[in-house]
Amino acid sequence: MKNLNDLKDLKEYEKNESTKKTTKTKKRVKIVNSAELVFPSNSVNESLSRSFVSSFLMQLNPTVEDISDIKCAVSEAVTNSIVHAYSGVIGKIRIKAFITDERVVTIDIIDKGCGIGDVKEAMTPLFTTNTDGERSGMGFTVMETFTDKIKVYSAPGRGTRVRLVKKISE
């Protein structure tokens, strides 16, 4: 009798769990559109990456300021990949862009370059590995300021993924 009760409980528990899962899925934001661009890390392609992102976001009818902010953040991330990740070599850079039904834009900038050992240190304002004073060390600061959220996944030798998230105002 006790075993049967246990079984009943288990069934109920499973049922609850499954409904929980479905409610979770319902809560997830819906991706309404996505696009991807892959290009070699030639610095001439920096303008291509900006044009790609701004053209893709035109469907949201964004303000000049929003589009300028995103272009700037993407330009910084791509420049980092070109200058630091693929320093002295040419590798592939991939940009993935998503738009959700809540006008939130997620842009991933992915490279398979040298990676960052200390992400926290790299993100410090004015931090730069360049010593001739011609680079400002403001790349990550610009990305942080011009987007709502930035996440950097990186490991030495494994490449870097920078995720930029920004809500586009109506």
Partner: peptide, 16 residues
Amino acid sequence: DFMDSSGLGLILGRYR
């Protein structure tokens, strides 16, 4: 129309 942090390096470098 567009400038990123590379422009900061350019301007501050020329200023220096």
